[in-house]
Design a protein around this nucleic acid. Sequence first.
DNA 1: AAAGTGACGCATT
DNA 2: TAATGCGCCACTT
Length: 111
Amino acid sequence: MSKTGFGESLNEKVYQIVKKIPRGKVSTYGEIAISLGKPRAARQVGWALHANRSVDVPCHRVVDRNGRLAPNFAFDGAKEQRRRLESEGVKFADEMHVDLSKSIWKGNSKS
DNA sequence: AAAGTGACGCATT
DNA sequence: TAATGCGCCACTT
């Protein structure tokens, strides 16, 4: 493994959280960042996903604060991602925006 | 340690 | 919707 090992960077925490996003739900970079305890580290979350983009991490369930995906850096393209989310039961407000109000996942919040 | 970089967030145009 | 500018934070070199 890399010299960083595991669980040492904030990055690793991001993967853990994204991995627990249930099917049919999505999360935002901001929400994840908040869960990490760093509400302003949203960029880091996105950066983490891009740095890894592993199959273990359902990055397609992570959208921006607007409910929009990452068209440029998405694994297959925005249209493929949209299709994928719809397959999981995620509703779309329009072709580029997920209906966050219905599909946002906040399971990482403290009870 | 300093600078560079980025799959963001938000305001404004 | 898209583009631009500014701020924020953490990783890489």
